[in-house]
Simulated scan of single mutants.
Amino acid sequence: MSKRGRVLVAMSGGVDSSVAAVMLHEQGYEVIGLTMKTWDYASSGGSSKETGCCSLDSINDARALAVAYGFPHYILDIRNEFSGSVIDNFVEEYIAGRTPNPCVLCNTHIKWEALLKRANHLDCEFIATGHYANIRVHDNGRYVVSKGKDENKDQSYVLWGVSQENLARTRFPLGNFSKTEIRQMAEDMGQHELATKSESYEICFVPNNDYRSFLRHQVTDLDDRIGPGNFTLSDGTVVGKHEGYPYYTIGQRKGLGIALGRPVFVLEIIPETNTVVIGDEVELQRSAATVRNINLMKYASLEEPMEAITKVRYKDAGMTSTLSQNGDTMQVEFHHAVKGIAPGQSAVFYEGNDVIGGGFLA
């Protein structure tokens, strides 16, 4: 075993995880590559050629790189676990009238757990991924996820759920690099095709980013169970019909299929009555939020209210807020109103570049 230790690297076949594996290899770690098969188009209702991190081409690309650099590579089929946790939750959340956050669940409950379980079998001290984020140890001894150097690629938002125990064994080699620098590294490695691979910003298991068709494929009697319902205004006035509440999300403007002579947005989803409340953009604004199932990183708990930046979406710039903890719930008071708070999405709390913690919007 090398002096740096043995590390199991999650390799999707993309440029980020591939360069991460090579970086660790060149830094003197004993690298073992692992590609996880989490889904396939057939089970998701897709008909086109598979693309992305779980395709056969991507698996072969990961393996070819490992062979080129002389380290072992394994494939781990976790489709059953992924389906039973991430996909089932995705469907259940929409049926509950919420907007799910599958990447957080996948990171927390699938990828990290699957990686660490296999790392233990292979006597690996560490695991590593190609996330654009950093991990540091705070003065109080706790492990903290911090923002990556590349603000446009920073992925700290989707990592709030990782436990202290798991963070202690995690490495993020790309945290101090930009995407442009990583692509150049791949070019310098002689991996032109890898360096120029396109990126997908869609949910990996939803074909063509069409979540409505995906829901119908997963729940074949969904349209029978939940038929058309009413669009109403905030005062209860019925202004039209919708296809069924699971097919809408908070803040949605396009695709509503209703014309009121002005832009309108989804303000609220009421599953009990199959009602979708719509209204003007200003009505989306909220001054407070409740966040459930919180996981704290930087501090074990918040004994007193504290000021922080809270992000309620991945690409959200964040808003200054005051946090007050009550058990596994956090009350967030925004200093200025924010819009588009969608139950089921993540709220992540920052102190500077550090993730204080996060949870799901109630």
Rank of each mutant, 00 (worst) to 15 (best):
F71E: 05
A317Q: 11
R63D: 04
P271T: 11
P100E: 05
S17L: 01
N326W: 00
R63M: 08
K315M: 10
D40M: 07
E165L: 09
A10I: 01
F349H: 11
D154W: 04
T320E: 12
D328Q: 08
S156R: 08
S163N: 10
I356D: 06
T35S: 15
L222V: 08
A186I: 05
D188W: 04
L302D: 00
E92K: 15
I269A: 14
T329D: 08
L76E: 08
I341E: 07
T38V: 12
D316G: 04
C54W: 01
C54V: 03
R216M: 12
V312Y: 03
G240V: 06
I258P: 04
G244M: 02
L361R: 10
Q345G: 05
G227A: 02
P246K: 03
P228H: 11
W160G: 04
N274C: 08
N293A: 13
E81Y: 04
Q27T: 00
F71Y: 13
T290Q: 13
V238H: 05
F172N: 05
S163E: 07
P72A: 09
E181R: 13
I182Q: 13
N166V: 00
A308S: 10
G28L: 08
V22L: 10
D154E: 07
G318L: 04
S234I: 07
L361F: 00
D123N: 15
E333K: 15
T129L: 12
P173K: 13
N326H: 11
V31G: 04
G5L: 07
V145P: 05
M185C: 09
Y201C: 08
Y157H: 12
F349Q: 13
D61M: 12
L194M: 13
V137W: 02
V31L: 04
D61S: 15
V239I: 15
E81N: 12
L105H: 03
S2F: 00
Q218L: 06
Y157G: 09
E93A: 14
K147D: 05
G70W: 03
M189I: 02
N176A: 09
E50S: 14
G357R: 09
T237D: 04
S43V: 01
H109G: 07
M306I: 13
G251F: 01
V104E: 07
E268R: 14
F90A: 03
E93M: 14
T320D: 11
D139R: 15
P263K: 12
E81H: 07
E81D: 09
S200E: 04
I309M: 15
Q325N: 02
G46K: 10
G190C: 06
L267S: 06
G130K: 09
H121I: 06
K111Y: 01
K147A: 13
R216V: 10
L56Y: 01
I127F: 02
Y29W: 01
G84P: 03
L8R: 11
M185V: 09
K147H: 08
S200N: 11
D224S: 14
R6A: 13
G279Y: 06
N140T: 08
A362Y: 00
G340H: 02
R313W: 05
F214Q: 07
Y74L: 15
N152W: 01
T180I: 10
K37I: 09
S163L: 10
D154L: 09
G255A: 01
P263V: 06
R313N: 10
A347T: 03
N208C: 08
E187P: 00
N208S: 13
S198R: 10
F231P: 04
S234E: 08
T196I: 06
Q345S: 09
Y245G: 05
